[in-house]
Measured scan of single mutants.
Amino acid sequence: NKEKKVFISLVGSRGLGCSISSGPIQKPGIFISHVKPGSLSAEVGLEIGDQIVEVNGVDFSNLDHKEAVNVLKSSRSLTISIVAAAGRE
């Protein structure tokens, strides 16, 4: 599966507009579980089932849900590497 990078700058009070969840035991990782229509996440093409592999240089493969949320909230400017639809297989 091809990795792609998206860049998101949080402007004003707009949030990311997506929710994440941890994958099942047999498929660990952090996946996008919800994308709000019209949100920044939707605008850059994030979709439900995409796996987040890295954010701002932080490897997401071994993070738990709480740590992942903290990384996503730690910066107003995010570089997110995803594997599209990895969670839909």
Rank of each mutant, 00 (worst) to 15 (best):
K2T: 09
V53F: 08
G49I: 01
R88F: 12
S22E: 14
I30M: 08
R88C: 13
G38L: 06
S81H: 11
V44A: 15
A86H: 13
E89L: 10
L16D: 04
S77W: 06
E89M: 11
F7L: 09
S33K: 09
K2V: 04
S22Y: 08
S39Q: 02
D59H: 10
L16I: 09
G15C: 11
N1D: 15
R76I: 08
I32F: 01
A85H: 11
P24L: 07
S22G: 08
G87T: 12
G23T: 06
A84R: 15
Q51P: 01
E89A: 11
A86G: 11
L78T: 03
K66S: 13
I48N: 09
H34Y: 13
S77Q: 14
P28K: 12
S19T: 15
K66N: 13
A85E: 10
A86Y: 10
K4Y: 11
K36P: 06
I48T: 12
R88D: 13
A84M: 09
F60N: 02
A86S: 14
R88N: 14
L16N: 00
V6H: 15
I48F: 06
G29T: 01
G17C: 05
S22N: 13
G23N: 09
S77V: 08
G29Y: 04
E89D: 15
I52S: 01
S39A: 03
V83G: 08
I48L: 09
G49P: 00
S77L: 07
S81F: 04
F60M: 11
S75Y: 13
A86N: 14
K66Q: 12
V35W: 03
A86I: 08
K66R: 14
L40V: 13
I32Y: 02
G87N: 15
E54A: 12
K4D: 06
L40I: 14
N62R: 13
V83Q: 10
F60D: 00
S81C: 10
I32P: 01
G17A: 00
K36N: 11
T79P: 03
R14P: 07
I25F: 09
K2A: 02
G87R: 10
V35N: 00
A42E: 15
E89S: 11
A85M: 08
I30W: 10
S13P: 12
G49V: 00
F31T: 03
V83F: 09
K5Y: 03
K36T: 15
L46Y: 00
S21W: 06
G15E: 14
I80S: 03
F31K: 01
S22R: 11
L10F: 03
G38P: 02
L16A: 04
G23M: 06
A86D: 12
P28E: 06
I52W: 02
S13T: 14
C18F: 11
V83W: 10
V6I: 11
F60S: 03
K4N: 06
R76M: 08
S9P: 15
S74P: 15
R14N: 10
S13R: 13
Q51F: 02
S39D: 03
E43W: 05
H34K: 10
P28T: 07
P28G: 08
N62V: 10
G23F: 04
G87H: 11
